[in-house]
């Protein structure tokens, strides 16, 4: 892969040329370690035209076309549907292509970049969970790395215009998958997720609230510091990720099993690369996927270099 000591970027394809795919393409074109060679859809579309305008080879002949190319990509980002990804994933794996899955299919380990981004870099397939998961799981983890969290609950409020037909038709997948990730990735013993769609005009910027049950004696200063530190880490790839207020601590109340509570109130403003800025829910997905892709690419380049050296 390397000649005269300069690393060549890792090659990639984006499958699914919709709004998410286009936004992801714009983000990845800024990367020095990833070179998006192909964008693939199943019908001729505006998204494919957008890709061509950005100088990327684009085809409406689907994954069949992609896998026929002389130079296969090393990475594929899938932004289609869970159903399509379930069909495509084994073909990528057979062809030795690593997959970053932005659909709710969840075939591979669930990844939140600042929490476990480095843990699954050689997995053939990683899942980007859900938008609400990407926005909130770093905060659950920021609390659970300081003190045990017997229960965590997240509430994601999304502008109606930022929730596509796929999300709407399968809203249970959102709540169930996010809740599972709050446990498995966030580190809560039990998780719950709630999503609310709000049609107000002008569209509301994505908002997320994280409630964690914590012991009455938990170290509040340490939790607050951990939350701020984690917000800064997320801001590295989503600059519009901010706290609306300092974490709010409440003493134990009836029905809380003797626990107190910390409430973390977030706003997620998108980077407006292609998607509108209110759709922070979509932006944090593409930004997290790009981030994981870059980590994978860096690892790949390192390994390949060693192999050929």
């Amino acid at each position: 892969m390397s000649n005269n000591g300069v690393r060549e970027p890792v090659t990639a394809a984006i499958v699914g040329p919709g709004n998410i795919g286009t936004d992801l393409l714009i983000k990845l074109q800024r990367s020095s370690v990833i070179d998006v060679r192909y964008v693939v859809g199943v019908v001729e579309s505006d998204g494919l035209q957008r890709a061509r305008k950005l100088g990327v080879e684009a085809s409406a002949e689907g994954v069949d076309w992609l896998l026929k190319q002389d130079q296969l990509p090393q990475l594929v980002f899938e932004a289609t549907s869970a159903k399509a990804h379930i069909a495509n994933a084994p073909r990528y794996q057979e062809a030795g292509i690593q997959a970053v899955d932005l659909t709710p299919a969840h075939l591979g380990p669930m990844v939140s970049p600042p929490v476990n981004g480095a843990a699954h870099l050689d997995s053939p397939n990683v899942s980007m969970i859900t938008c609400g998961g990407q926005a909130t799981i770093p905060m659950v983890y920021a609390v659970s790395r300081i003190t045990p969290v017997p229960y965590a609950e997240i509430v994601a409020s999304v502008a109606s215009k930022g929730a596509g037909p796929g999300t709407r038709a399968n809203i249970d997948e959102f709540t169930e998958t996010t809740a599972r990730a709050v446990e498995e990735v966030g580190g809560a013993q039990r998780g719950k997720a709630i999503i609310i769609l709000n049609p107000v005009e002008p569209p509301m910027i994505m908002r997320d609230t994280v409630f964690c049950a914590i012991g009455p004696e938990a170290d509040k200063d340490a939790i607050t510091a951990s939350v701020h530190e984690m917000v800064a880490e997320v801001q590295e790839y989503v600059p519009g990720y901010t706290l609306r207020a300092e974490p709010q601590f409440d003493d134990p109340q009836d029905g809380w099993d003797g626990n107190g509570r910390v409430g973390i109130f977030l706003e997620v403003k998108g980077n407006a690369d292609y998607l509108p800025s209110y759709a922070g829910n979509l932006d944090i997905m593409t930004a997290a996927a790009a981030r994981v892709g870059e980590l994978m690419a860096t690892t790949k380049a390192g390994i390949d270099k060693e192999t050929v050296a």
Binding site: V155, S157, I194, I196, L197, N198, P199, V200, R207, T209, F211, R244, A245, Q248, G263, F265
Partner: peptide
């Protein structure tokens, strides 16, 4: 705010 956004009351 719509039904379900009780968290926004605290905000």
């Amino acid at each position: 705010y719509v039904g379900g956004q009780e968290d926004m009351i605290i905000d």
